[in-house]
């Protein structure tokens, strides 16, 4: 039996129109296509500026496509209402970002527990789960009660990773999840990714860390092929 398709991208294009610069239109993607099944991990590759992050943000619903279909767990993000996208992100579509965006005084433990609380989990249990994951990622317990805005890059990244793995999202997007980690924590993250695949999650990620990519990605998709043809000046 073939695993279910969790992500289906077909003929997606994306442009940025810069109104402050006389309406200059910058085409970034054209004819983008991607299929990811449950239990699969796909790595997006291509040089810097080729559109990897743009495609990942389109998959998260953060960018609006100019055309095409972006189905995530059956919902077309090109046409979905904001409410549908919010609901998808709550329980189905997880995202490990490179950037930490949180209310400044919220403790790390609550930042990680937040997705579970949003899903209605009881506070004690949500914090227990968050703590277990932070412990697994070797974030010292004395930091759990502090706001991660004061943390180092590697510590912040582990908080972001914990947030993305605290709920078993069926679809998970990873933006450089091992970028600023030491070897021990890098190994922990790779194991979390392997576990997620084993439970049937569909993963798409950007990994500049080539050995990590080789270890966990089932396939690589070079986004350079989706670059729009250069328009003659």
């Amino acid at each position: 039996m073939t695993a279910q398709v969790m992500i289906r991208v077909a003929d997606v294009s994306k442009n940025f129109a810069l109104h402050a610069q006389g309406g200059t239109v910058i085409p970034v993607l054209q004819g983008a296509a991607l299929t990811v099944r449950a239990g699969e991990c796909v790595a997006l590759t291509g040089s810097s500026g080729s559109g990897k992050s743009t495609l990942l943000r389109l998959l998260q619903g953060n960018y609006a496509p100019a055309g095409g279909v972006i189905e995530v767990a059956g919902l077309d993000l090109a046409t979905a209402t904001p409410r549908q996208v919010s609901a998808l992100r709550r329980g189905t579509l997880g995202y490990v970002s490179q950037f930490l965006r949180v209310v400044p005084r919220v403790p790390a433990l609550d930042v990680v527990a937040d997705p579970l609380l949003t899903l209605g989990m009881e506070e004690g249990e949500a914090r227990d789960r968050a703590g277990a994951l932070l412990a697994q990622l070797n974030l010292p317990e004395r930091l759990w009660g502090l706001s991660p805005t004061t943390f180092s890059g590697g510590e912040q990244q582990r908080v972001n990773i914990a947030r993305g793995f605290v709920h078993p999202y069926p679809v998970l997007l990873l933006d450089e999840p091992t970028a600023s980690l030491d070897p021990v924590n890098r190994a922990v993250v790779l194991q979390l990714i392997r576990d997620a695949k084993a439970r049937g999650a569909a993963l798409v990620g950007i990994f500049h860390d080539a050995p990590a990519r080789a270890e966990i990605a089932d396939r690589e998709v070079d986004v350079t092929v989706f670059s729009p043809q250069a328009v003659p000046a």
């Binding site: 940025f16 810069l18 109104h19 402050a20 619903g61 953060n62 960018y63 904001p82 996208v85 919010s86």
Partner: peptide, 21 residues
């Protein structure tokens, strides 16, 4: 109007772009 992070990160209207930038 739309999803908050989409409007802020991928603003379509000239005025929203100005506001965000």
């Amino acid at each position: 109007q739309g999803l908050t992070d989409r409007v802020l990160d991928d603003p379509q209207h000239a005025y929203t772009q100005l506001l965000v930038n």
